[in-house]
Simulated assay, not measured.
Amino acid sequence: MEEANKQRSGRSLLTVSGAFLLVASLLVGAAHHRAKENALKPISSASVTDSLAQGVAWIWPDSNGPRGVSGATAPYREAAVMAESLVLRADRVERGGRRQPLLLPAGVRLIPVIHVETATDAPDELAPVHRDAIIAAVNRQATATTAGAELLQLDFEAPARQRETYRALVVAIREALPAGTRLSVTALAHWCTQGDWLDKLPVDEIVPMLYRLGPHADEWRRRFTQRDPALARRCQGPALGFATNDPPSQQLLSLATRPYWFDESSWSNPSRPPLHPPR
């Protein structure tokens, strides 16, 4: 009888221990799931404001960007302003840009942005008329860099068929810039997974645009947050581009010591959204 009681007692202890381990495992799993969810949770609007105060505002035509409280510190450090827009067509270039004076808060440094698009009838290789128009825009805007951030940015979402043309254009822009003027380029997120060609560009800064990422947005953000080895080295910061209406997680934002911010509703809208294919 005593032996049977000991056996029953031992089985009870094992049952209690097993239940305890199961509950502990479930609690740890739940905590891990919450931590994972929190890591992907978008930052608050207040955090966006704090980040912008230390970063760059992308400002497109018909806007002067975010406005701070009168008399207060400027709400951002630098303004990347689309100074000229060029649409490349079969045998000509359509020019556009700002249609009103630019009014920036005192102390904000200017970064001229040259925005380039290719129409469907544009050739794979740039014709002299295309290249000359882009270089002329670079020369016009280069003078503004000396009084600003000493940086000029090319925003050109070149299609895959123009990859070699894009590389040659970046080299030509670099050669056209005055000594001391740095060159920045924007990059679509999926460009960062297509080998190391971005790492080889003769530029000082690459800014992946981590917004308007489509149905695979979470996957793209995860890859950048975790610094996926498949990403080009220079796509992993310090410059990353975000949108105020679709903010990143704190973990992803922490990788950008030089964040660029865009507001689609208030700072004017680019002509068309980029297309990001799945991985």
Rank of each mutant, 00 (worst) to 15 (best):
W60Q: 04
L255I: 12
M209P: 05
W197I: 09
E78D: 11
Y166D: 02
S85E: 14
G55S: 03
L201N: 06
V69G: 07
Q141F: 10
E3L: 14
R161Q: 05
P61H: 01
I206T: 08
A31Y: 12
A137P: 01
L198H: 03
V81L: 08
T145R: 07
L103N: 13
L104C: 05
L154A: 04
V23W: 10
E37C: 10
K6P: 02
Y76E: 03
L188F: 09
L240I: 08
V138C: 03
I43L: 06
P75K: 06
R174S: 04
Q251P: 07
T186F: 09
P75W: 08
G97Q: 06
V113A: 03
R163D: 07
L210D: 00
T15A: 15
R11K: 13
L255S: 05
V116C: 01
P202D: 05
E164V: 15
T193E: 06
L13I: 14
V48P: 00
P128A: 04
P259Q: 07
V129E: 05
A158K: 05
I206K: 01
L213Y: 00
E2L: 15
P208Y: 07
V56T: 10
D204K: 10
L252V: 08
E150T: 14
V108R: 02
I59M: 08
A39Y: 06
E164K: 12
A168M: 10
N245R: 15
W191P: 00
R233W: 13
N5G: 10
L240H: 02
Q194G: 05
S17E: 12
A179C: 09
G71S: 04
V113H: 00
R258N: 11
A239D: 02
A187D: 02
S85L: 15
G18Y: 05
A53M: 11
L253Q: 01
A189N: 02
R223C: 01
L86A: 03
S254H: 09
T118R: 15
P270H: 03
V23F: 12
P66T: 14
I59H: 03
L169Y: 06
D132W: 11
R227M: 15
P112W: 06
L169A: 03
C192P: 02
D62F: 10
T181V: 15
R221T: 06
D246M: 09
L255A: 06
A19T: 14
H33C: 14
S266Y: 15
R11G: 08
V28A: 14
S47F: 12
P278C: 09
V69S: 11
A136G: 09
A119R: 06
D50K: 15
L21Y: 08
N139P: 11
A158S: 11
W60Y: 09
P128G: 05
T225E: 04
F156G: 01
V116Q: 00
T165F: 01
A160V: 13
H276C: 12
E219K: 13
G237A: 11
I59F: 04
R279A: 15
T165G: 05
L27A: 14
L126F: 13
F224N: 00
D124R: 15
P123M: 06
A24Q: 14
V87E: 11
M82P: 03
E164M: 12
K41Q: 12
A80E: 01
Y166V: 08
L183P: 00
